[in-house]
Nucleic acid binder design. Structure first.
Lengths: 163, 163
DNA sequence: CTTCCTGCAAAGGCTTTGCAAAGCT
DNA sequence: AGCTTTGCAAAGCCTTTGCAGGAAG
């Protein structure tokens, strides 16, 4: 088991590879290329950490490159997920979808402090294996999982003790 | 690891214990007792399987006992969760919250078929232990978790093969 | 020229909130 | 009396959808 290092700023070369991968998916699905879609992809990939749709829309606006409409972003995001550039995450927060870069990043799950919102990313191979095990036993083909641990971090525990 | 047996219809005695537990929490929090709240609790507890807020509202209506307003149910549910009678589940479906009985039931997680929606409940002690492990290492006190495995069941795989 | 993409506005679905009446202690 | 609870309606929030113009193949 190990902690995941914070997502590094993605390199331009990686962005290129990601866009190539996106183009492949676009072609496969008989879609057309689009500058807007690629800009959304690039800005999303460059954003460190977890972000909401709104965060991304703001980033796009402040990037000055394009000012994509939220509806457009909502339409583009599923494709970026399908293409493996992003992944949905942090389901437990409830308020709206959160995404993070998945392209050329290690798979990981999340440990969330329900008090201050702090998020720790971790990778636990043993659990992944067990998950596959379970699926096999029930005849399922595992395609994904949601795994979030909820707790209270040390700082919040000591702070709340005062309360 | 083992499969969880389908939730049995809850006994009247268990309902009594659950309501007692609810009353304790109500008292602790300085709230007042309420027949509506207890009826919501009872109907929710009697409902087998996973249900949406709307399901519960319908059940209440058709029960003929009370016709609770959805807003009331929305207000009562968090308390029932806090009191340990219910728990939130099946986050992955996205469309609205799902609950299920937690009172006097074995803890378990879910394996969901993304094709037909079938849900298998399982209990895997090893994973629970590992989760606690992870939390400790990061100084978190584990208070809960979301763990859903997504996959495609055998039936759907063979059916889709035709497609 | 056909199909997809985009922006806009509107609708949708779930959930929360403000208010006044009713209920509990 | 003073508090909580309830029903109702309205608002909120995130997200999806229909439509018309523009872009891509």
């Amino acid at each position: 088991m190990h902690k995941i290092k914070p997502a590094q700023t993605i390199s331009s070369a990686a962005i290129g590879r990601a866009l190539d991968q996106l183009r492949t998916v676009v072609k496969q699905r008989g879609l057309k290329s689009s500058a807007v879609r690629e800009t959304v992809a690039e800005v999303a990939l460059r954003r460190p950490g977890h972000f909401s749709v709104d965060d991304l829309v703001s980033d796009l606006r402040s990037s000055g490159v394009i000012d994509a409409h939220p509806a457009t972003v909502y339409r583009v995001l599923p494709l970026l997920v399908e293409a493996g550039l992003l992944q949905l995450t942090l389901i437990s927060t409830g308020d709206g979808a959160r995404y993070e870069r998945a392209f050329e990043r290690e798979h990981h799950d999340h440990l969330v402090c329900t008090s201050c919102g702090k998020v720790v990313e971790f990778c636990f191979e043993a659990i992944e294996l067990l998950q596959r095990d379970i699926c096999e036993r029930f005849g399922f083909e595992l395609t994904g999982h949601i795994h979030e641990l909820l707790g209270v971090c040390k700082e919040c525990r000591t702070t709340d003790a005062v309360t």
